[in-house]
């Protein structure tokens, strides 16, 4: 451990959030992610995983507590500002613009960058995702499930985020495609981008994660290195074994 710790890439402090004021779903979460880490959030259906990450991204009202990005308080910044501060978010469902072309999806994300770097960034990201690059003028709605997830990730990467949050990117994908998506995430993380991954697909997620936290009924119950958690029989029995993969959240 170094003497002066840099601020965590992402942190929450006693975060309480929910869709209605008197109905907190996330109930006092303290959560820290160090720069360069890949952390997975696990938990049963309805635990509030999506709500937690949506609150951090600015899509669900935060009732109390704070969220920090590299030490800066982003609790009250509006959703469209957070991406400018380097926080990219890929929602669980409806995470691409189906009526826009692939190129337009990417360009839309690039629109907040200075004009001269836009084309360059899009080209860089397309190099990472050759399948997408080959079909840039196709309507995003015509893509397959796996390609959609790739597009959503690609779009999030356009702004060179410092932190990338993904909500169940493996939902609805075949095991083979899940493997491809996760391999890509590992590469992205290796390139220096901090990743927070919400997952039901426990095995695959723990295989690439450094650390995991388990959310139950809106509270953090366990956390630890991914390798240890994967082998912890109590945890496995309590929260992991029963969780079916590929559950879609209700709107």
């Amino acid at each position: 451990m170094s003497t002066v710790a840099p601020p965590p890439a992402l942190a929450t402090q006693a975060l309480v959030a929910g869709y209605e004021r008197d109905l907190p779903i996330v109930r006092g979460v303290d959560f820290q992610v160090a720069a360069g880490e890949l952390v997975v959030i696990l938990g049963p259906n309805g635990a509030g995983k999506s709500t937690l990450v949506k609150a951090i991204a600015g899509l669900v009202p935060i009732h109390s507590g704070h969220a920090f990005l590299a030490g800066a308080d982003i609790t009250r910044s509006p959703v469209q500002e957070k991406v400018r501060h380097g926080l990219a978010f890929v929602p669980q469902t409806e995470n691409i613009f189906a009526t826009l072309s692939i190129q337009e999806n990417l360009q839309l994300a690039a629109d907040i960058l200075p004009r001269r770097v836009q084309a360059e960034r899009i080209a860089e990201v397309c190099d990472l995702f050759p399948d997408l690059a080959a079909r840039r003028s196709a309507r995003a709605g015509n893509l397959s499930g796996g390609q959609r997830q790739m597009l959503a990730v690609a779009r999030a990467l356009i702004v060179k985020p410092s932190v990338l949050i993904l909500d169940e990117p493996s939902a609805g994908l075949s095991p083979k495609i899940v493997g491809e998506v996760f391999a890509r995430l590992k590469d992205i993380n290796a390139a220096g981008i901090t990743i927070v991954l919400v997952e039901q697909n426990v095995k695959a997620a723990l295989a690439i994660a450094h650390r995991a936290v388990i959310l139950v009924e809106g509270e953090l119950r366990h956390e630890g290195p991914a390798a240890t958690l994967a082998e912890d029989p109590i945890v496995a029995q309590l929260y992991l074994g029963a969780a079916p993969a590929g559950q879609e959240e209700g709107r």
Partner: peptide, 8 residues
Amino acid sequence: TQPAEKRP
């Protein structure tokens, strides 16, 4: 209607 006031 209340919590929405805080909502962007």
